[in-house]
Design a protein around this nucleic acid. Structure first.
Lengths: 196, 196
DNA sequence: ATTGACTTAGCGAGCGCTAACTAGAATTCT
DNA sequence: AGAATTCTAGTTAGCGCTCGCTAAGTCAAT
């Protein structure tokens, strides 16, 4: 139970680990394949043995991010059962924990612009699914009369955006632990939808 | 009165207008000075007659963004007087209107990573000022007993993040006008801080 | 005669990416 | 079992291109 609150450290190949670090620090465009190779301790063509091109490295990292967050959020919502309060709470808690524990992966979201149309579509689809999860929970809460917000769709987007913001400021060595922050955000989200 | 709800179209020099368009479409790193020059209809050194280097173009645009949003939010908060509800409402309304009307300028926020340390510091200072405005309004509302959120600082960050998200999805040809969206967000923000 | 707003021409560096080769491990054939 | 082959995970060397940027010249308006 509540297995989805656990976010173990990432298990990435050396190339992906170095690439993630470099992209987070300097951005995708400013990260050259030469720099990645040098940091890994291999030559450039070694990268091309494992990945078709530079964008495939970014996409592999984004795939990792997508599967990680989707698995946790889906598990949280499934465990919550049919109650809209529990579903929204679970989704927000899982998302915030992800943002706090994997700030680097979360940052990659801002590099989606570098994706080809096909890859971008796949990524956007995933993001829409999570937004849909939030919106559905809010809408069903409104139908059940437990949420009173007059704008469920806008509310869903607002909540997702505020959760994503956590990755930008959360400090693991700061005063608030990830779990406390997640609890704060659950309370804020429930208040935002005007939970009865 | 309420002059700050007006966001007139930008008045940018041809170089800055083209640069903004290109940076929003392709990102700062992927926008070359050659592309900007060609789009403006001049040669590359003409850009260097008006700007010291490429980053100075980005910084000029960010300066424009900073002064625009700061002027409007400051005016909104000043007009609100001492009431925390009015101050928070005014700030959120002004920020959301800015995000909806100047989505391109708002997008530049994600390019702050390309700034030199000195320029970045100046930009972060400005962002912190706005976050401080929100936090102060929330804290004084808590002191006055009109807001009941147990985490005013976290709440301020959450509200700023959700407002910034508007720039990412707002569609001027969509069903919701900017003013309606701003009203939605004011209501969400007041609910989020648990306004009595 | 000077200034403002450019132009032509081009430097040096870094970019993503690839063809061709190689050392060692694993597998298959006789 | 031992030789021959194939596969894995790289290497060296370098192509063609674009990048930010600049020195030096032009030319109309002040």
């Amino acid at each position: 139970m509540r297995q989805w609150t656990h976010y173990p450290a990432l298990d990435l190949s050396p190339i992906l680990a170095v690439s993630l670090d470099q992209i987070v620090r300097h951005g995708y465009d400013a990260t050259s394949v030469r720099k990645i190779a040098a940091e890994v301790g291999v030559t450039v063509p070694a990268l091309y043995y494992h990945f078709e091109n530079k964008q495939a490295i970014l996409m592999a990292l984004l795939d990792h991010a997508m599967t990680t967050v989707t698995a946790h959020v889906d598990a949280a919502v499934a465990e919550a059962g049919p109650d809209p309060v529990a579903r929204l709470s679970g989704a927000v808690e899982a998302i915030v924990l992800y943002m706090a524990h994997h700030r680097d992966l979360a940052f990659l979201d801002s590099e989606r612009r570098s994706l080809s149309p096909a890859n971008l579509a796949r990524y956007v689809e995933h993001r829409d699914r999570i937004e849909g999860l939030l919106r559905d929970a809010i809408v069903s809460g409104c139908r059940a009369g437990v949420f009173r917000t007059p704008a469920p769709a806008v509310c869903g987007r607002a909540i997702l955006a505020m959760c994503q913001g956590v990755a930008g400021w959360f400090d693991p060595s700061g005063p608030k632990k990830a779990e406390e922050t997640a609890a704060d955000y659950v309370r804020i989200a429930l208040a935002a939808v005007e939970s009865a």
